[in-house]
Simulated assay, not measured.
Amino acid sequence: MGDEQHSVTSEVGRLRTVLLHRPGAELKRLTPRNSDYLLFDAIPWVDRAQEEHDAFAELLRAHDVEVLYVTELLQDVLEYGAARDQAIAEVVADARWGERLRAIVREYLTGLDPEDLAHTLIAGLAHEELRAGHGLVYRLMDRLDFIIDPLPGLLFTRDNSAWIGDRVALTSLAMPARRRESALTKLLYAHHPRFAGVRPVYDPSLEHVEGGDVLLLSPGVLAVGTGERTTPAGVERLARQVFEAGLAHVVLAVPIAQERATMHLDTICTMVDVDTVVMYPPVADSLTAYPVTWRDGDLHVAEPRPFLQAAAEAMAVDRLKVIDTGLDPVTAEREQWDDGNNTLAIAPRLAIAYERNTETNHHLEKAGIEILPISGSELGSGRGGPRCMSCPILRDPPP
């Protein structure tokens, strides 16, 4: 272990290794009382969500993709004292607790074996589960509150880390309910033997950047959405980091108009071939990009241009082909909401998509893209599709 390859330079090169998180007990913590805070639109049927996710993973394996799981890697690293101490220290730093409760939680977590500790870090710790709890903070908490919040959003592994070339961007998640996800992912990359020697190119302590906003259009060309989750300051910082590391020569900063169905750039645009995107029609003509380059040791920001035009020029292709979501405005909006744009290419012209987006999938197939459909009736309750649920770690270079 430790000499495995890690490199991703495009969205469509043959996928070899991917990081997933199989949904578990953390989804069972969702209730009508907390689902908004934990960023889920509906309360999923967990057993069915697990069946759907298992089918997704099996489909990847059937196409020779190695599947790694967050929980298994986390259990591995918690065998190491330094990783275990770091994980506990980060959790007990919660300023809501006060000294008395902090000491009690630290003692509780220290007594758990690696499997139970991993479970608690992901599924959270409810007030009533901490039987040793006492003190003012504990007594004034609602009995239905969580002392350690669950992480149902961990299902979307793309958000908390994204590989750019042979470096990993450990992203900085904007929403408070999800910030511990980045800390857990950082723990994996820092301590697991499989990732020995990996150098991060971004850190969760920096300005907000989320992996769903980062598209690797082609080797050396990144598009980074900025809107609800990734801030302009985050795009600027990421651009500086990747330029200094020699990982890119153009970064396209792409402002995203915030609507209810929009969170990340990959909710409106993903790639299915080296020169083809599937895109939400209402933004295809209005989306703009600010080309950012590196000159004389500093960032140079050009005037905004239409996104498709700026992307094609940066990628050195005549034009980007566009496949629409749906056939009419109503269908397009519905299928965009259901992650019709959020496809995962596992090779050029071969992509995984939710089966329910029938019109979008029809358009893709008509354009010569082979679609591997998966069920997402429960997985989609957190508003994420196949791309959101997968963090590629190794892809072949694109043709």
Rank of each mutant, 00 (worst) to 15 (best):
A25M: 09
E210R: 01
V242K: 12
D85H: 11
V322I: 14
T343W: 00
T17P: 01
R167Y: 15
A55Q: 07
A103D: 06
G384F: 02
D339Q: 10
A223F: 06
W337C: 09
Y108S: 03
A89E: 08
F56K: 00
N361Q: 05
R106K: 01
R102G: 02
G197H: 12
V250M: 10
H192P: 13
G124E: 13
L372E: 01
E207D: 03
I323Q: 10
R22W: 11
L206R: 05
E236N: 07
H127P: 08
D296S: 12
D41R: 09
R139W: 12
H192K: 13
T17K: 13
F307V: 04
A248I: 07
E236H: 10
D396F: 05
H63C: 11
P150W: 08
G111Q: 00
H119P: 03
E66V: 14
A351E: 01
Y354L: 05
T171G: 11
E181K: 09
E181D: 08
I352K: 00
V330Q: 11
L217A: 01
R96G: 10
K321W: 15
P281Y: 04
I371G: 05
A89H: 06
R395D: 09
P44G: 03
R102Q: 09
I369P: 05
V105P: 04
W97G: 06
P176L: 07
I43G: 00
V92D: 03
P306M: 02
Y202D: 08
I369V: 15
E66L: 14
T331A: 15
I346W: 01
E210A: 02
A132Q: 09
V201R: 05
R260C: 06
H208D: 01
S218T: 09
L136A: 15
I371E: 05
L394K: 01
A345W: 04
R29D: 10
L184K: 07
Y189W: 14
F56M: 03
Q86V: 03
A284I: 06
V274F: 06
V91S: 04
L247E: 09
T331E: 14
L140S: 15
R48K: 05
A310S: 08
M1K: 11
C388D: 00
M175S: 10
P329E: 12
Q241F: 13
V301P: 12
M175V: 12
G165T: 13
L136Y: 13
L344E: 02
S390A: 14
E378S: 03
I122P: 09
I88S: 05
A316G: 14
T343D: 00
Y202A: 09
H208M: 01
V277L: 07
V105S: 02
L30W: 00
G81N: 05
R387F: 06
E107P: 01
W45R: 00
V242N: 14
R319N: 14
V168G: 15
E99D: 14
Y189T: 04
Y108T: 02
P200H: 05
L144S: 15
D113V: 03
P291E: 04
L184D: 06
